[in-house]
Simulated scan of single mutants.
Amino acid sequence: MKVLTVNVGRPKAVEYTDAPSGTTGIDKQPTDQAVWVSDPGPKGQGASGVAGDAVCDLRHHGGSDQAVYAFAREDLDHWESELGRPIGNGAFGENLTTSGIDMSSVLIGERWRIGSGGPVLEVTTGRIPCRTFASWLGQTGWVRRFTRHAVTGAYLRVIEPGEIRSGDPVGLVHRPDHDVTVEMAFRAETIQRDLLPRVLAAGEALHPELRAAALKYTAAQERTPS
């Protein structure tokens, strides 16, 4: 398992973003420089956890629980075939393009150390597709198509800060004792709401917004007469 490339984005003015600034940082490009990764602070205040990377819509992106976004090169290759066009590393807005990691089966709360003595990152949830993502790719019906496929990449929080370089190995340092995968969490949040009670097994590692939704759904189900 390794990081193929570290990708950072600069603010770009576009017509299709929901960000109040009218800009987006989704156009991320690989860098050959070492990049510092740290906790950016709470959502709405902190942006990307990757130094030099732009997050323009702080309402929906960035913050401690979405500090870093990783997507597998193997899954980009799938979409290259499906869409019939080249898709470069960073094209899905990911900070880390990885190799050798099955992003759908990683567990919420799983922790990776990047490189030798680099940062420790913890998986929190999958990525919900948005209008900016669809417009950036120029794909009509993209949000529905991406959601059906349910291979979303993984958002990560920073447990220990450090530097990441393209080519760094990814080491598994903790794998929780539950079955809540990124794919399950995504499906629970989108097209299979009946899975919401099950994702609570991930505990405090689960993205707090999804945890709150799961608690609310579960409480409502318990109040509903059988």
Rank of each mutant, 00 (worst) to 15 (best):
P129E: 10
T132W: 07
V55C: 01
I87A: 04
E80W: 02
A201H: 08
C130T: 06
E94C: 08
G93T: 07
H61G: 01
A72E: 09
S81H: 13
Q66P: 00
T125K: 12
V143N: 12
I114H: 07
W136L: 10
G109H: 05
V151R: 12
P225T: 13
E163R: 12
T224L: 15
Q29Y: 06
F146P: 05
T23D: 07
L83C: 06
G203N: 08
Q33H: 12
G46T: 08
I159Y: 00
R10T: 13
T5K: 14
L4Y: 00
F133Y: 08
E160W: 10
V151A: 01
V35E: 03
A202L: 08
T17C: 02
L83R: 05
S21G: 15
T147D: 04
T190P: 03
A54Y: 00
Q192P: 01
D32H: 07
R131M: 08
E80P: 01
I108D: 04
E209A: 15
R211D: 04
N89L: 10
R145D: 08
T125D: 13
A54T: 04
L172D: 02
I164L: 05
G84Y: 13
E183H: 09
R223S: 09
T125W: 09
R111A: 09
W136M: 07
S48N: 06
G203W: 10
P129N: 06
L58D: 09
Q66I: 01
A214C: 11
N89E: 14
P119T: 08
G22N: 10
L96C: 04
V68S: 01
R187S: 11
V8F: 06
R73P: 03
V151I: 13
Y155R: 01
A47L: 05
P86V: 08
G162D: 11
N89R: 08
R198G: 08
A154C: 15
I128V: 15
